[in-house]
Simulated assay, not measured.
Amino acid sequence: MELKTKAHQHDFYLPSFLNASHPPERRGLRRDQVKMMVLDRITGNVVHDQFIQLEQYLNAGDILVLNNSRTIPAILKGEWHRNGKVFGTNVELRLARKKNDSVWEALIIAKNVETGDCFKFSEAFAAKVVGEVFKSPLKMIQFTLQGKDLYEEIYSMGEPIRYEYIHHPWNLDYYQTVFASQPGSVEMPSAGRAFSWELLLKLQQKGVKLAFLQLHTGLSYLLDDEYAHSPEDHFEEYSILHEDMEAIVKAKGSGGRIIAAGTTVVRALETAAANSTIKGWTNLYITSDYELQLVDGIITGFHEPKASHLDMLTAFIDENMLFEAYNIAIQQHYLWHEFGDINLII
């Protein structure tokens, strides 16, 4: 089968059986035993391997940059109130982006929600709609709790976001990387999921250095294709420690390669390089005409048709080579999405 592409709208047929609906651990594998397709940026050559063999493709002096943002259970269900009356029960709210210690943007799965409406999750925990989000179905909501107290309630009552290819309510642990430490992502930074501590130790023993940053992922899909906005409309908060950024710049200057574990890491690093700031918000949209300043290689999953992440990959490798490799991945039954296999482009 041939993949058909068009500028910034890469479309192809993905058989449904290639959507990974189960975590590897529920398929009889360790998380680091998923398949890995290694794609050469220059030649387009493809090698098939397992992720546990990653050390064979990285060198001493390279820096592997990981996103240690921790996934929160971003679906809450509550009772919908307006002017003292109950308008609905078990209404679903999907957290989209944190604005401050008590205010979030959220997707409310109900029609005709108005500013002033309240959603009650328990006797002590509720949220009020305090505004609209411009040109978006998202609402601004203010919780009755803030900071640590708010996160405790979210972790107590929430569920992880799951999309239609997930047929079982896997618990939150399956949506975490082993090194996740900073709560804030509403969807898992999934490229890091395949790492185990054993693999990270093997890489360090080889001389590969590790660096961490945080980019808290926002809600990627608003359940309505009418609102499939550009990544330029999608702001995500990132933070990089000064010492880690110094190590990355030093390694780059001395010939080491910077390998990003995921598109979130690429966005954060390239924004930091372009704006000379290690903390802030990014809406960077990377495409084939973008000249990467820091990142030399990417570890990523396989991305669905029309995904903007595919545009980012064309900054690493020629578009035709990329989609020839995707054809091969489909033929070889690589698995897609957060519980799927890995693509190393280097």
Rank of each mutant, 00 (worst) to 15 (best):
M1E: 14
Q9C: 12
H10Q: 08
H10V: 07
F17Y: 10
F17S: 12
R26F: 12
L29G: 03
D32W: 08
V38D: 06
L39R: 03
L39W: 01
T43R: 11
Y57V: 00
L66Q: 02
N67C: 07
N68S: 06
N68Q: 12
R70I: 00
H81K: 14
G84L: 04
V86I: 13
T89L: 11
V91I: 14
N100Y: 06
E105D: 11
L107M: 10
I108V: 05
T115R: 14
T115N: 12
F121M: 08
K128T: 13
V129R: 03
F143W: 08
T144C: 05
K148S: 07
M157K: 15
H168K: 15
Y174C: 04
G192P: 00
G192Q: 00
F195N: 07
L215I: 04
G218L: 07
S220F: 08
L223E: 13
L223Y: 07
A228R: 15
F235S: 07
E237R: 15
I248Q: 05
V249T: 14
V249M: 14
G253M: 04
S254Y: 13
S254N: 15
T263S: 01
L269K: 09
E270M: 05
A272V: 03
A274G: 06
S276L: 05
W281M: 13
N283Y: 10
T287C: 07
D296N: 14
F302E: 05
K306P: 06
K306W: 11
D311S: 13
F316L: 07
D318R: 04
M321C: 13
M321W: 07
D341G: 06
I346M: 15
